[in-house]
Design a protein around this nucleic acid. Structure first.
Lengths: 340, 340
DNA sequence: ATTGCAATCGTTATCGGTTACGTTTCCAAG
DNA sequence: CTTGGAAACGTAACCGATAACGATTGCAAT
């Protein structure tokens, strides 16, 4: 509950203990040069007054704060999963985490949100930052690690092996006998989207199938963007027998559209997603998807950032994590081989 | 990418524009007393240098920061849902959000985590804080709103109508013909847990059924805690025909245990949860549960905190949101009326 | 008794931004 | 030509904590 007592500052403690603020600071930070007697006095005063050092004041003066930042533009289950991984990596590391979200930018497309968020934190508050799915590259005087970086980014980053994952997904459909495979792409400025589309093309080319541009819908990773695209693909005279969506969120939306159109999955239509978000395992018969261990993306990003901050990182600046195909209930052989 | 250029400060802008930092500050904050000409100069310099004011420095000097804080001890889907509601309420409100998570406390039971988190933020960084499911009451000089408060808390709070929700859930089972209904309770220090148990007792009493203490398991809202309890209930000679779990996470765990034991849901066992987390709609035939609109908990908490900070709150200090029963596939009439 | 070196602790500059207050400028009224 | 007063802007004192630095003290070696 909100009391109105003034905040206890270091000088309050100093006065109470009959020493200077410098001595209090030394006691708080465990520095050398304070007698056991004085230390006890100061500790007693701290305890008595309930003093806690101000994160803000400390940040301003110090270069190191032992706080890492994370900036994101939304809180989907993807983000939540990343956060779990980050927290696990930071557990008992001495680093705290601050997540910053700007309400003015939330949910809207806003050019340069990553940079603006970063500037707010990067002054002195945080020792380094994780940026989740940035749309463009960022500048910062403190280390930055991107999860799912922008295309052609040189920022240290952690990402899944999107190319191989996508190839595996499409090959899975090919092995089942599918020949007309639709694709719903993600936001093109993201490297993940580009590689997943490249994987789609590569796999088809490997099977000697020419890419039909009319089977490719341009989404943006937002589930809602997939609905009209799925409808377009499924309502045509020669619909694909399978659809590969560049994210689970979009794939689940495809399932919803298929259900509304009276299509049976997987008999009339096979669907494959990418990400393996928690919802995918639970959806109806389970969504076949490419697992990219979102949790581990967060974990590795935090581990890398921690080391970059302390200056003892000797690994690669770009980490690529393996992906695995998770076959569930939304894929099967096509009911009948399409005419063509 | 991390460049090593020094951060742009207000004095950099001042130098570039040929004015003092005071003038820059006035321009940035839109204060009176700067000529149109000078304002333009300063704005140009800000644009050119890419200046962003430091949250830290501003916080230290000012009392108001227009940043609200949120502290939590974990990032489950419950928390993610709350965050979405909070962000929606804060959208375009001028308030930004900082989420603070202490890595040393993460995942472990740690007495007083809420207070410690709060102290870090409350110095001057935030104008007020939301505390998600605190285990005990907190003190702060800035306003605090609790989501799902501790028992007997007097902190302003937002919570669901847990009593009515639980009554409705159990009555649903009673109407289906169940007489032996098991209950898996939540962490007893939380008000939500207490009211949900109270609802269980009230509904049974209303039907003239005495509570069988051996049918009540003591969980702590952690899904894992429910597994052994469910096993105990279901492996006895006279198992209940239905189980009401105090949270969806625990209810889903009950379903898992039932499946392993070869029990058919809902024929051999009906299960009802509480919360309606996203996973519940997707699980198998769908979990029957009490919807408490987690999203709205976050939304209302943020709305309330915003008003408390600006000082124009005239609503009640304790908000109770309605709950609704969502009947899905995990409940049905018992296969055979139990002997008694 | 003097010197040297640690140990201990206070003083003060500093971080970046805000604001009370003082100073200068400028225009219009007297 | 004063004079008043408001507008425009700079100066410097903060906010709370840290750390470089200097000052003081105690104690042992010379």
């Amino acid at each position: 509950m909100a009391g109105d007592r003034a905040p206890i500052t270091m000088s309050d403690v100093a006065r109470a203990a009959g020493v200077s603020t410098a001595t209090v600071s030394r006691v708080v930070n465990g520095h050398y040069g304070v007698s056991a007697n004085t230390t006890a006095q100061v500790r007693a005063a701290i305890e008595r007054l309930g003093y806690e050092s101000s994160l803000v004041a400390t940040s301003l003066r110090r270069s190191r704060t032992n706080v890492l930042g994370l900036v994101t533009h939304s809180f989907q289950s993807y983000t939540a999963e990343v956060l779990k991984g980050v927290m696990q990596a930071l557990s008992r590391s001495g680093f705290d985490l601050i997540i910053y979200a700007n309400s003015d930018l939330y949910g809207t497309y806003s050019q340069g949100w990553e940079q603006r968020h970063l500037n707010r934190l990067s002054g002195t508050l945080t020792d380094g930052c994780i940026v989740v799915t940035p749309w463009e590259d960022v500048q910062s005087r403190t280390p930055v690690v991107a999860i799912d970086p922008a295309r052609d980014s040189t920022t240290p980053s952690v990402t899944a092996d999107n190319l191989t994952g996508a190839v595996t997904a499409v090959e899975h459909l090919l092995h089942l006998g599918h020949r007309r495979i639709g694709f719903i792409a993600g936001r093109s400025s993201l490297a993940a989207a580009w590689f997943r589309e490249e994987g789609y093309r590569t796999a088809l080319a490997g099977a000697g199938i020419a890419v039909d541009p009319t089977l490719v819908g341009r989404g943006d990773f937002n589930p809602e963007s997939a609905a009209p695209l799925a409808r377009d693909l499924l309502e045509r005279d020669d619909p694909p027998t399978a659809i590969f969506a560049a994210s689970d969120g979009m794939a689940l939306k495809v399932l919803e559209v298929a259900r509304k159109l009276g299509l049976a999955v997987p008999d009339d239509l096979s669907v494959v997603g990418f990400d393996n978000i928690p919802e995918s395992a639970l959806a109806e018969s389970g969504l076949t998807t490419v697992d990219q261990s979102i949790h581990q993306l967060g974990y590795e990003a935090a581990r890398m950032l921690k080391s970059l901050v302390t200056g003892d990182w000797d690994g690669p600046r770009q980490i690529v994590l393996p992906t695995t195909l998770v076959v569930r209930g939304t894929t099967a052989a096509p009911r009948s081989r399409p005419g063509r």
